[in-house]
């Protein structure tokens, strides 16, 4: 399939329509659906976009994104709750610490490629989990609780769910524009080139490893950003944020939505979190259904929901 003509901010016509539909949904949905649940999904969409940049466009399979999500959540929570610093600084702290961790892990993991990369990132994330379990700074099993929401630029009080919902809505739309812009920038072109044909990209003079590392750090930072927002909204950073479960969920949401599509992470996050939300009372059934979804999508719908939609509509979304 050919990419349509790119317009303003890297949006093609079909994507601009999809984006407008999504914006309309974001405006209408809090009157119908539970806003706190919606915000949870929005944070997760940002996380899924971060993952998509790496897997979908750079072709790097990380199995350790919980480390960056967890680092972002803890550092943001610590900055806001223990140091008492404002909202913006806390989110920045969460984002930067995840980026820094991404730089270290990326530097280690890009020494090996393909499936080894996946195994290394998984092992590193497991190590991070054990560290988080032991150091006093994370609050162990309790996590960091009662993180204050504070206010936006000292002007808008964020303690009401309605106010923070609209702030979150704007941030989400901004991230989606950013995600699309990155993919369609010259930088994004190089990332796709390194995925499709690393030798060719290298022979054209691009330092493939450096681009991989940059993409990894960017993805980690965005994951930390998503986690920071989640921590502020829910006032909580816990071991779940940094555990395997989080990594598995983000992979699953990409697979279900459509790996390497702009709107795949949006659709995938909605599906996966809704599944989880409605199945939560049934305990281990969540695990069983998630396993089933994984298996079925790998065997039958590898292109994901948005990928399938692309085929039907004959355009890229």
């Amino acid at each position: 399939m050919q990419e349509d003509e790119v317009q303003f901010l890297g949006f093609t016509k079909p994507r601009a329509v999809a984006f407008a539909l999504l914006a309309a949904f974001i405006v209408v949905s809090p009157f119908v659906l539970y806003p706190v649940f919606l915000m949870k999904v929005y944070c997760f969409i940002i996380f899924a976009c971060a993952y998509n940049l790496l897997l979908g466009y750079t072709g790097l399979m990380s199995f350790g994104h919980s480390a960056f999500f967890g680092a972002g959540a803890y550092l943001c929570g610590y900055t806001a709750a223990r140091l008492g610093l404002p909202f913006e600084i806390s989110v920045l702290a969460g984002t930067l610490s995840a980026a820094l961790l991404g730089l270290v892990f990326g530097w280690i993991a890009i020494r090996r490629s393909g499936l080894y990369f996946a195994m290394i990132t998984l092992a590193l994330a497991q190590m991070t989990y054990f560290i988080a379990l032991q150091v006093p700074f994370t609050g162990g099993e309790d996590g960091i609780q009662q993180v204050p929401r504070g206010s936006l630029l000292g002007l808008v009080d964020l303690s009401s769910d309605t106010t923070i919902y609209w702030v979150m809505a704007v941030i989400l739309l901004g991230v989606l524009v950013f995600h699309n812009r990155i993919v369609h920038s010259p930088f994004g072109q190089v990332l796709r080139a390194t995925r499709k044909n690393p030798e060719r990209a290298r022979s054209l003079g691009y330092n493939v490893d450096r681009f991989k590392l940059m993409s990894f750090v960017l993805s980690a930072a965005l994951a930390g950003f998503a986690a920071s927002l989640k921590t502020i909204i829910f006032g909580l950073a816990t071991l779940t944020d940094i555990s395997m479960v989080t990594s598995i969920e983000v992979v699953l949401s990409n697979l279900v939505g459509g790996i390497g599509t702009i709107f795949g992470p949006v659709v995938g996050s909605f599906v996966i979190l809704s599944l989880e939300y409605y199945l939560a009372p049934y305990g281990p059934w969540v695990l069983l259904i998630q396993g089933l979804v994984f298996t079925l999508f790998v065997l039958l719908f590898r292109q994901g929901i948005v990928g399938k939609l692309q085929e039907k509509l004959r355009t890229l979304l």
Binding site: L55, M61, F63, G114, L115, A118, I248, V251, L255, G283, P284, W285, V286, L287, L288, I289, Q290, G291, L292, V293, F294, T295, L296, V298, L299, R302
Partner: peptide, 21 residues
């Protein structure tokens, strides 16, 4: 190759979930 990993991960979650139930 990544699909093999995803498939076996799905299988693992399914079996673990089943035994927990």
């Amino acid at each position: 190759h990544l699909y093999g990993l995803l498939l076996t991960l799905g299988l693992a979650l399914f079996i673990e979930g089943f035994l927990r139930i």
